[in-house]
């Protein structure tokens, strides 16, 4: 049970070309902005959309060979959609049992399996309810049970958490993690939330405009984003430039002092918590000091994330108290300081 997919297809403006492999028990997150082709790709994997060309092989069985496409209902897969999409006319238990019944299980068997799965996802005793009587989190748990009950070779999760409110998302994410750890097949998780990718995936594929732009473990991708999109997602300021000894000459003109030697085309990445802000020019040993202007501010718990523009585009986190004391309203002029040792440098 493993997934090998090499898919090419056009849908309107989108020209999708994706090659991925997912091992047994592995969770691959497909991360990307809206319109990048993530959903199109999983629809191809599900057999809901025949690809123009390509090959999809799951557990040694060919699902697509570019000529013939096995219809969705003949693929051993489970899929969870953003809005749960439980059948409104069936009870929760019948929803979960649906896939078993269509695949020929007896009513009694299907009921028993559905009940067992409902217990596993924490919906014990809610089987007789109608989907409309469930909360969003409960509905998504039921949808997961419905996808997993048939023990599929491939599990597709299409934005499974994005319709949930923040609190529920937290708990459902944790449960999902547990279920994915126990799942023996391959999983493809579509998300535009880096936290989902970090928390749930073994490996991340970043998709932009139909192309894979980066692949790696969540930690790698977070530490060393290769595109603005990913960098912004993980909160890093990503500064492309050229290494020149212990400094990077940025493409935008400014120079960044760094702690180690670097040469050739590189990225300099700066975490928002590493950026210190001052209303007046500070004295001291800070090597990187730039004039900046606050262009945006978003509260993030106890901190406020400030978007800065000036010599170097940066993102900085300050405490809510400092934010108020320093009067960092958009338009305010500030000094931004970053220690050379806080700048991560990696090859482009």
């Amino acid at each position: 049970m493993s997934l090998e997919a090499s898919v090419g297809t056009r849908r309107g403006d989108l020209d999708l070309r994706v090659d991925v492999e997912v091992a047994d028990g592995e969770v691959l997150a497909l991360l990307g902005p809206n319109g990048a082709g993530k959903s199109t790709f999983v629809r191809v994997l599900a057999g809901l959309l025949p690809p123009d060309r390509g090959r999809v092989v799951v557990g040694g069985e060919v699902w697509d060979d570019g000529v013939t496409s096995r219809p969705a209902h003949r693929r051993a897969l489970g899929m969870v959609f953003q809005d749960a999409l439980l059948f409104p006319h069936l009870s929760v238990a019948d929803n979960v049992a649906f896939g078993l019944r269509t695949r020929g299980a007896r009513r009694g068997e299907a009921r028993a399996a559905a009940a067992a799965w409902l217990t596993r996802v924490g919906l014990d005793g809610l089987g007789a309810r109608r989907p409309a009587e469930l909360s969003g989190g409960q509905a998504q748990r039921a949808a997961l049970a419905r996808a997993l009950v048939g023990d599929p070779a491939l599990l597709l999760l299409d934005e499974p958490l994005s319709a949930l409110d923040a609190r529920t998302r937290l708990t459902v994410r944790a449960e999902l993690r547990r279920h994915l750890a126990a799942f023996r097949g391959s999983t493809v998780l579509v998300t535009h939330d880096p936290v989902d990718a970090m928390a749930l995936a073994d490996r991340v594929v970043v998709l932009e405009e139909g192309r894979v732009v980066q692949t790696g473990t969540p930690a790698e991708v977070a530490r060393r984003p290769r595109t603005d999109y990913v960098a912004r997602l993980v909160g890093l300021s990503l500064l492309p430039g050229t290494g020149a000894g212990r400094s990077v000459r940025l493409d935008c003109g400014a120079a960044v002092a760094i702690a180690e030697e670097a040469a050739g085309p590189v990225f300099a990445a700066i975490r928002p918590e590493s950026v210190a802000l001052y209303t007046t020019r500070p004295d001291g040993s800070t090597r990187n000091l730039w004039r900046e202007r606050v262009v945006g501010a978003t509260p993030h718990g106890a901190t406020v994330r400030c978007e800065l523009d000036g010599e170097v585009p940066l993102v900085a986190d300050v405490t809510a108290t400092s934010f108020a004391e320093m009067g960092l309203v958009p338009g305010a002029e500030v000094w931004a300081g970053v220690k050379a040792s806080e700048v991560a440098v990696y090859a482009r």
Binding site: L48, M79, F81, T102, A147, G150
Partner: peptide, 19 residues
């Protein structure tokens, strides 16, 4: 989309239509 869901749950067109 409910019809898509049914397809991913192993329901052919006729079963999907009926159920």
């Amino acid at each position: 989309r409910f019809e898509d869901v049914a397809a991913t749950l192993g329901a052919g067109r006729w079963t999907t239509f009926r159920r």
